[in-house]
């Protein structure tokens, strides 16, 4: 008798990898064991392809349903879900497309996929109140230099070599004139994705602004982030992000220490 863990492992492997190991555990009764398992396998595959299609709608439009389903099937057999929540499936699809030989003719596909994922994450992220700028007023200059911001859960940053935001909009709007007008040389693009008032919002940032924003969202102390960003109008970036609710909280490390002194939620 296999243990439950062995049984689960065999069934999972048999369903995804299509080998016969799972069928040995299934009773054949009028309907053969392999045929019974095929029902589960097909349901799982259809569910996972649907999950990917919902997360990557622009990719789906770009390559068409048949190619998308074929590519998704190759992907899901190599990288089945690790989470029971299908909303988490799967950020690795963009990296997969980047290296997928059959999609090599579409150099911007992985970039569009990353934007698709960022938008999907923005839409599914939990709600969080924006940081009230008034809470920052009590900090002295030394504390302001060390401040670390916490980004809103819906905030995502995408960098792509091609104008994937224009492609994304044109394809999802089915605007053929806009598709024809796209200049693939109009890149790279530096994008900020955020949910505001219930909808996703995609903004193009200047490269230095994007790098500063990425540093701040990664929790880098303000002084370090500004120095690393180079020539950037830090005031405008900070004010715009505070107004737009890009941050939800902050922490200030003790001078020379690593423990946050304060966390404002």
């Amino acid at each position: 008798m296999p243990t439950l863990r062995e049984l689960q492992h065999d069934i999972a492997r048999g369903l995804i990898a299509r080998d016969a190991v799972a069928a040995a555990h299934v009773v054949s009764d009028e309907i053969a064991a392999a045929a019974r398992l095929a029902v589960y396998r097909n349901t799982i595959v259809a569910g996972l392809i649907t999950a990917l299609r919902l997360s990557y709608p622009a990719v789906h439009r770009l390559v068409g349903a048949a190619f998308f389903e074929s590519a998704a099937q190759v992907f899901l057999e190599a990288q089945p879900p690790r989470s029971a929540c299908l909303d988490d499936y799967d950020p690795a699809f963009a990296d997969f497309l980047d290296k997928f030989a059959a999609a090599a003719a579409i150099p911007y596909l992985a970039g569009v996929a990353r934007l698709d994922w960022a938008v999907s994450r923005a839409l599914h992220a939990p709600d969080a109140d924006a940081l009230d700028p008034a809470r920052l007023g009590a900090l002295d200059a030394a504390e302001q230099r060390r401040i670390r911001f916490v980004p809103h859960p819906s905030v995502g940053l995408v960098r792509a070599d091609h104008p994937v935001d224009a492609i994304w909009r044109a394809v999802l709007a089915q605007d053929e004139a806009a598709m024809a007008a796209i200049d693939l040389g109009d890149g790279p693009v530096f994008l900020l994705v955020q949910r505001r008032n219930g909808d996703s919002e995609i903004s193009r940032l200047a490269p230095a602004t994007w790098h500063l924003t990425a540093s701040l969202c990664a929790g880098r102390p303000l002084q370090d982030a500004i120095e690393a960003a180079g020539d950037v109008d830090a005031v405008a970036v900070l004010a715009t992000h505070l107004i737009n609710g890009v941050f939800t909280a902050f922490a200030v490390d003790e001078a020379g220490g690593r423990q946050p002194r304060e966390i404002s939620l």
């Binding site: 095929a38 029902v39 589960y40 396998r41 097909n42 349901t43 799982i44 595959v45 259809a46 392809i49 789906h60 439009r61 770009l62 390559v63 068409g64 349903a65 048949a66 190619f67 998308f68 389903e69 074929s70 099937q73 190759v74 057999e77 059959a102 999609a103 003719a105 579409i106 911007y108 596909l109 492609i167 044109a170 394809v171 089915q174 053929e176 598709m179 024809a180 007008a181 796209i182 200049d183 693939l184 040389g185």
Partner: peptide, 28 residues
């Protein structure tokens, strides 16, 4: 499960090599 059965016809060997969507409408 019936929805799952519909995908049974999808043979991994008959891979679609040519993207058939809107990518052809993108300039370049």
């Amino acid at each position: 499960s019936c929805a799952g059965q519909a995908t049974q016809a999808r043979d991994p060997k008959s891979f679609v090599l040519l993207p058939g969507g809107d990518c052809g409408k993108i300039a370049g």
